[in-house]
Design a protein around this nucleic acid. Structure first.
Lengths: 209, 209
DNA sequence: TGACAAGTGTTGGCAGTGTCAACATGACTC
DNA sequence: GAGTCATGTTGACACTGCCAACACTTGTCA
């Protein structure tokens, strides 16, 4: 029996839901999303193959729980990147710092990042998309603070209606950048872009019609 | 028997490979990539479940063939968007026209677009990535022509070494924009961005370190 | 023309998956 | 202490990708 496996000595596991999510996050990066199997996960947790169905309606809902946890971690990382006390690179803007933190998160958990941004998300009930929403709003608030010249910690509540097109554009840029990198889409025989620098310079969208 | 099905009257099908690809592209958009099954495809083509394995090593290679065909179509669409005779919107740049064509392609075949940009691509042998490479180079050439002020049809061969970081940035922007749209990631309770406009204004990357 | 080889399609089978219905166990409540 | 409910188990079904062995057709070359 591998040391990563546990055997339950009681009929009821106790924290199966949490353990499945924890093991799911591990397996995601280890084996990839395609290979992630509820049965295998149950087995390694020491419960029967159908035990997960007491906690999740189906596999999709389980993946939703993983994604939600991913967004919680992402939100944490983004918030930390612009925390007041944090030491900054010279001439680094909050938007740039957040872009780099976003990139770092995705690179550290590529399979989870993919899952978090898969079409599955829009089919999920709201209870699984709370952190996703918060993460996007944190980005929007930071962009808005930069646009209106407000320094310090951004607060989306006081900044008035943000420029949502600009938010979408900045999000698109960093999202695309991250995916091209972690999916290995950039041709390997070309000199590799400086991903980290690019993540730090979120381009400006030409305004107008 | 459905009219979309065929029954072969000879032992050998004759054009099974082509038919599988054609049906695969259809099924991809109809049922989604997750539900795409070689067995079901074989069945609807009127051959046995293992017949595809005479033409493709495994499912991944089949998906690679679909993606390659997708990139051929994308290249076709991008090239048409900047063709000399084509009528242009007022004040539309070649880069903008190409961005809009890129968006239109992805929206018309979202599942195929996702497949074309999945991590699978970097595991594929070169014979399946030719059109992908050509498409990216077409984008790079158009960006380079815009950057150096050359008008008319871009030719990556004569433009000298392109600014690959700028290419990666522009690609990232439009790629991210497309994915956020087709994957339905943008919160539905917020006013929807003007995707088509955004696709037409590829932002400028601040130069320098 | 006829033997042979290569290409293509078929059959049966294996291991693995998600999911369901029926049942078992244990913890919590009155 | 009885009953209820959450949680875990067993067995089964339909489905998948893929493999080995076999069958049919076509083309090649003496």
């Amino acid at each position: 029996m591998s040391e990563t496996e546990t055997r339950k000595d009681t009929y009821h596991h106790g924290h199966l839901r949490e353990e499945l999510i924890r093991r799911g996050l591990d397996a995601l990066e280890q084996e990839g999303a395609e290979a992630l199997s509820l049965r295998a996960l149950s087995g390694s947790a020491g419960v029967s193959k159908t035990a997960p169905y007491r906690h999740f309606k189906d596999k999709e809902e389980f993946l939703g729980a993983l994604a939600d946890e991913g967004y919680r971690l992402l939100h944490e990382a983004l918030a930390a990147s612009i925390a007041p006390g944090r030491k900054r690179r010279r001439a680094e803007t909050p938007v740039g710092a957040m872009g780099r933190a976003y990139m770092a998160f995705a690179v550290s958990r590529p399979a989870l990042y993919r899952l978090m941004n898969s079409p599955l998300m829009c089919r999920l009930p709201q209870e699984y998309t709370g952190w996703a929403r918060k993460s996007l709003m944190l980005l929007a608030g930071t962009l808005e603070a930069a646009r209106t010249g407000a320094e310090g910690s951004p607060d989306v509540r006081q900044a008035g209606p943000p420029d949502l097109d600009a938010t979408a554009a900045a999000w698109a840029y960093i999202h695309g950048l991250v995916l091209i990198r972690i999916d290995g889409l950039y041709p390997t025989d070309l000199p590799e872009p400086d991903w980290d620098r690019l993540a730090g310079v979120v381009p400006e969208l030409p305004t107008g019609s």
